[in-house]
Design a protein around this nucleic acid. Structure first.
Lengths: 198, 198
DNA sequence: CCTACCGATCGGTAGG
DNA sequence: CCTACCGATCGGTAGG
């Protein structure tokens, strides 16, 4: 038995990176393993030295993308206590995870349908963790009457944000900071006056 | 020259219907023309008697799906004046367009990427019309201070609603009426008191 | 990681 | 609309 060498691991990461970007841009089924090989500077059979199958590339890309996004969220949230500020930070960071170039492994939101049942279960574990901190923050804001109650609020919110990958263009003259604040303003009610009514 | 017979047109509609449903459920690239033929009770080459290519089936399905949804929206909105009520009706009807079974030709939100440039232009004409009535209603609600200003409000709203196709399950114990009202409540501020402050 | 290749499947067509 | 078929391409593998 031998552990993978550093060089080998780096090549594997490179394959994963280009695969994830192609999956994000063209979709899983519209991307061929030959596309991936070419983008990684390899011959057509070589990606299969690193991954058993195209589906395994997808599963790994989804899970690593979510994990990387989760790390960025935890870092951005460090030391942030106020629920409104936490929500704004979550929204801004999530938009970055979705839209900002330089994401080595982008979030792949729509491609999980190409996975089979057991792979979906693995992916669900990663996404459940990603959503937990959102739910906690939303619960606090409901308690503070900054947003209305509702079963689906977290899902509505993810929808708002995730759909931006269908329309956002970096050259559109609207920064992610602006967009993030606009989205938060759409959800948040003004905070109640500090003194109660007579 | 001969016009298509009724029987021929009916078969074409049947091909389109099953193609649209397969595209919606599995995605364009994961659906084969043989899947479509089988679902329509034909042999593998026969769909091409009605459509020049698989892409033409997709383009037609998208445009007809949007047009059918548009008709349902116009019918539901007839005689409805109040902006809040109009928004609630738009949301409820759009969720029906997305999620309700019995949609012969469902809305295909994500598959337009498989089209080429000229086909996308045709699709854009149909979707622009679909969005116009939404924008008008949102503008009225901004003027009435029921929702905050923002460049992207219509896009946030469509995101909220469209993402529901990723998580909504009809047996989940939540009706579309409930969901629609919850979504509207998330957006709408309470209307201002009728008398102005001193 | 490359060379060389395989079996399967795909979109699409000719001819009737 | 069916039969019969084609050329291209696909995911994946054996052997080195």
């Amino acid at each position: 038995m031998s552990l993978p060498s550093n060089a080998e691991a780096n090549r594997r990461d490179e394959v994963l990176r280009v695969a994830a970007q192609l999956f994000a841009r063209k979709g899983f089924h519209a991307t061929t393993t030959r596309d991936i090989a070419e983008a990684a500077g390899m011959r057509s059979g070589s990606p299969f030295y690193h991954f058993r199958s195209k589906q395994e590339m997808l599963k790994t890309a989804i899970i690593e993308g979510v994990a990387a996004g989760q790390l960025r969220i935890e870092a951005a949230l460090a030391g942030c206590i106020d629920p409104e500020q936490r929500l704004r930070t979550l929204i801004r960071t999530h938009l970055g995870n979705l839209l900002e170039s330089g994401c080595d492994v982008p979030l792949l939101l729509y491609e999980w349908q190409a996975l089979d049942a057991s792979e979906r279960t693995e992916v669900a574990c990663a996404t459940d963790r990603y959503q937990q901190v959102w739910q906690d923050t939303l619960d606090q804001l409901v308690a503070a009457r900054r947003i209305p109650q509702g079963h689906a609020t977290r899902l509505w919110l993810f929808g708002m944000l995730n759909w931006s990958s269908q329309w956002y263009r970096p050259d559109g003259g609207c920064s992610l900071d602006q967009l993030a604040n606009e989205a938060a303003d759409l959800l948040l009610r003004p905070s109640a006056a500090p003194s109660p009514p007579p």
